[in-house]
């Protein structure tokens, strides 16, 4: 169990009185990728920010390499990206790209707000993933707006990071994004989490989008069953 990098126990997050998710328990080891799947507003972004140490859980415990997330972030290299809308529009792309390592990752001098959405997304991803020796990669809807080449680059890069010992946590509402990419799948539906290992979902071959879609649909139906029974 020593290679467990992210460990969550009965994790609960609330914004004021509104509960986002409740009682999440999971472990992610080094060399593993966890896919967090759920509909919009299910708490995927919140979960990633809790792991990144940007938010504290309301209840439960989250440890990253046996430390609090904030401590872990200061002692290991973490790559976190929440989407192109988090990049400041007035900054030049080349300046932003140099923020991770100091080296320019793009010669593009236009301001971020003038770039296409996919280019912004790629700039944010390349900046975060250019950090050396990443131990933990947290990406929120990373394939959003990427073209085919950029998607392929992202998948290859994530695979490389994972093979080099990083834990990868990816959040998406779209089963197509995460199918076949992850070792574990955490479905966030109706504030609850359901964890599946990839081989539990598919005994032969990689997990397909249809398989993930079916599980998501079943969990959503289960979640609304009491309401349907009452009506």
């Amino acid at each position: 169990m020593s290679d467990v990098l992210v460990s969550a126990r009965d994790l609960t997050a609330r914004y004021g009185r509104r509960e986002v998710f409740h009682g999440l328990t999971f472990d992610v080891c080094a060399n593993q990728a966890l896919g967090v799947i759920g509909p919009n507003g299910a708490g995927k972004t919140t979960l990633l920010r809790v792991i990144a140490g940007l938010l504290s859980p309301s209840e439960g415990e989250l440890r990253v390499r046996d430390m609090s997330p904030r401590q872990a972030v200061s002692r290991m290299n973490v790559g976190y990206f929440a989407g192109d809308f988090t990049l400041p529009g007035s900054v030049r792309a080349c300046d932003w790209g140099s923020l991770a390592t100091g080296d320019a990752i793009t010669p593009e001098r236009r301001r971020i707000r003038t770039l296409s959405r996919g280019t912004r997304q790629l700039l944010g991803l390349r900046t975060v993933l250019s950090r050396p020796h990443l131990g933990l990669v947290l990406l929120d809807e990373p394939w959003e707006a990427l073209d085919v080449d950029a998607s392929r680059w992202l998948s290859r890069t994530l695979e490389t990071k994972r093979d080099r010992g990083a834990s990868v946590v990816l959040a998406s509402h779209d089963p197509h994004d995460l199918a076949g990419v992850c070792d574990l799948y955490l479905f966030l539906v109706n504030r609850r989490g359901s964890l599946f290992k990839a081989h539990e979902l598919s005994t032969a071959g990689p997990v397909t989008p249809a398989m993930l879609g079916n599980v998501l649909e079943r969990l959503q139906v289960d979640a609304t069953a009491p309401l349907r029974a009452a009506s």
């Binding site: 990144a52 140490g53 940007l54 972030v73 200061s74 002692r75 290991m76 290299n77 973490v78 790559g79 976190y80 990206f81 929440a82 989407g83 809308f85 988090t86 990049l87 400041p88 923020l99 991770a100 900046t127 975060v128």
Partner: peptide, 14 residues
């Protein structure tokens, strides 16, 4: 809260 400082806040800087 717009996420503009995420890169810095997760950089390990105290």
């Amino acid at each position: 809260r717009r996420g503009h400082f995420d890169l810095l806040l997760t950089s390990g800087a105290p």
